[in-house]
Design a binder for these strands. Structure first.
Lengths: 73, 73
DNA sequence: ACGAAATGCAATATATAATTTGCATTATGT
DNA sequence: ACATAATGCAAATTATATATTGCATTTCGT
């Protein structure tokens, strides 16, 4: 389900996927896959990403719950 | 680093490790290992656990940051 | 429009999360 | 003290997150 919040937080920090990847110690592809969604990263990786981007777990990974056009009101 | 918050949330709900395990679709051992700490569960599993216990990611998995006696003030 | 950087995508290989089974140990009630 | 339920622990196996490589496609400045 496409993690756009993470992508936006990364861009706000002026980082490329590769920068973030290096900072948290994984590969560019891994970052790309997480942003692309339908991926299931590890808790430690999520935490590392949050710290690198100055966000919390809830900020980036909690309730992506907007499937389709639902949940607007 | 021993996830005591998760254990407490589980006990407040009156669940055994086995109950929670069944509810989120993993094994008793997996739950035990996560509570015991130094384990690295999957994001989806963390989310399932949070929902089963009526908590958020931040509630249970963010900033376990009490290494030793530090960080008290 | 062009070139270069950034990102997407796919196959194979590797590291590690989660399972399974069995038994030891610790709680909890009676 | 006893019995039983709940949890801890450990080894071998299976499933899956992450690495690696290479190339296609998109994005963005000039």
């Amino acid at each position: 389900m496409k993690n756009t919040r993470m992508k936006m937080a990364r861009i706000e920090k002026g980082m490329k996927q590769e920068d973030l990847a290096k900072k948290v110690g994984v590969t560019r592809q891994t970052i790309g896959l997480i942003e692309a969604g339908d991926y299931n990263p590890t808790l430690n990786l999520c935490i590392a990403i949050c710290k690198a981007l100055g966000k919390t777990l809830n900020d980036l990974f909690w309730e992506e719950v907007n499937e389709k056009g639902k949940n607007s009101r």
